[in-house]
Computed example of a mutant assay.
Amino acid sequence: MDLITLVAEPWADYGLIDSGHGRKLERYGRFSFIRPEPQAMWAPAQPQWQADGDFIAASDDDGGGKWHLSRDVPRGGWHVQWEELRFLAQNTPFRHLAFFPDMAPQWEWMRERTGEGAEVLNLFGYTGVGSLALAAKGARVTHVDASKKSVEAGKANAFLSDMADRPIRWMVDDAVKFAAREVRRERRYDGIFLDPPKFGRGPEGEVWRLEEHLPGLITHCRNLLDADSKFLVLTVYAVRMSALAIGELLRQATADLGGRVEVGEMAVREEARGLLLPTAIFARWVRD
C-alpha cells in the first residue's frame, strides 16, 4: 500500500493562519484562536499572534485545559459555512471548535461516490457535518453518536443548512452495539464512515478503547457491505498507530469484496507558508 496525503486547503470560513513552537493559529469564521499543537515543532512565520481566544492546556496528561476568550466570542457559538452547508462553530471543553476542518477532503471524496438514494452509515458522527455533506448529495444517512448533546447539535446544524427534512436517522447509541444489531438485521450500506476516538463511553456506560475494540467494529462494518457497496472510510486521531496498520486491517476485512485500500495522513495547509500540518491518519476501502 502506498502512503498518500490528503490536504485540507483554506476556505472562506476556515484557515490555518500560522503554526509553530507547539501551537497553531486558526480562523473560524470571523474569529481566530490559538490551540496547542504538538506536531508544530518548527518556528512560526509570525513573531506575534493576535487572537480572539487561546486554549491553555492542563499541566497533566489528561487532555484537559481551559479556553481564555475575548468578550466578543459568542459562548453559544456562531455560524460558519462549507460549500452549501451552514453549521455552528463553538469553543468546546475538549479544545475543538465543534467540527474538524481537516475532514473536508474526506467529505469531498465520499460525495463523489454517493448518489441519490445511497444508504450511508456515519459512526461516531459527532455534530453531523459529514452526515449533512452526504445528505446534500441525496444520500439516506444513518448518523450514530453516543452523545445526546452531539446528536442534538447535528439536528440543529441540519436546520441551519435547511436540511431538517432530509432522510437522516439521528441515533443516540453505542457504535459497536448499533453496528452489531444492524448485522443481525441483515442491513447493508453503500458506504460507511467512522471516526472513532481513542477512548469513549456509550450512552449506557459502554467503554470504547480504540486498540481493543476497533478490529471487531471493522468486522461488523464489513458485514454491512456487499458487492454493490462503494466505500468504507476510517480516520484516527491522537494515537500511536500507523496508517499502514489500519490499512492492513481494512485490507484483510474487505479482501473478498475486491476494490482497493488507500492509506495515508491527513493534513491542513498553512496559509503563511504553505507548509502541511499533519492532523490524523486514515485508511479507506473503495470500489471504483
Score class of each variant (00 low, 15 high):
E9R: 15
M171R: 15
A175I: 10
G200L: 06
W285K: 06
G264F: 10
P203M: 08
R23K: 13
K148T: 14
A57K: 08
F33D: 01
G117F: 11
D226V: 02
E248R: 13
D190M: 00
V233D: 00
R209H: 10
Q90W: 04
S59L: 12
G29K: 01
F94S: 13
L85I: 04
G258K: 06
I168T: 11
E84C: 09
L132K: 06
E83M: 02
M163R: 07
R287Y: 06
L225F: 00
T219F: 01
L276G: 07
R86L: 02
R27T: 04
K137L: 11
T92W: 00
T254S: 05
A227R: 14
V236A: 12
W109C: 10
R184H: 11
R140G: 07
E108R: 14
D102I: 02
K198Y: 04
K177V: 12
E84Y: 01
G191C: 00
R284L: 14
T92Q: 13
I17H: 03
D61A: 15
R75Q: 13
N223R: 14
E119S: 13
P278S: 11
G77R: 01
V239E: 14
R260W: 13
Q46M: 15
G65C: 09
G15F: 07
W208N: 09
A255L: 13
F31I: 01
D165I: 03
A40G: 09
M1W: 01
A51R: 06
I246K: 04
P38F: 10
E212K: 14
A280R: 10
Q252H: 14
R273Y: 06
K230P: 05
K198L: 11
R71A: 15
T127I: 05
L132T: 03
G264M: 11
G29T: 05
L132D: 09
W67H: 06
A104M: 03
G258T: 03
A158T: 07
H79W: 00
D54Y: 13
D2M: 08
R86M: 00
A153H: 08
P36K: 02
F94R: 07
R113G: 09
W208K: 04
M241E: 12
L224K: 03
A45F: 14
S32E: 09
G76E: 11
R269M: 12
V120H: 07
G191V: 00
F231R: 01
A40Q: 08
A43D: 15
E26A: 05
K155W: 09
F178Y: 14
V141Q: 06
I56Y: 02
G117V: 09
G125Q: 00
L123Q: 02
E262L: 13
W109Y: 15
P203I: 06
R35M: 13
G216N: 05
R260I: 05
Q90E: 14
R75P: 01
C221K: 00
L276V: 10
L249Y: 05
K155D: 03
G22K: 06
V172D: 04
I4F: 05
M41P: 00
E265W: 10
P105C: 05
A98G: 03
W78G: 08
G53H: 04
S242G: 15
D174L: 07
E270Y: 01
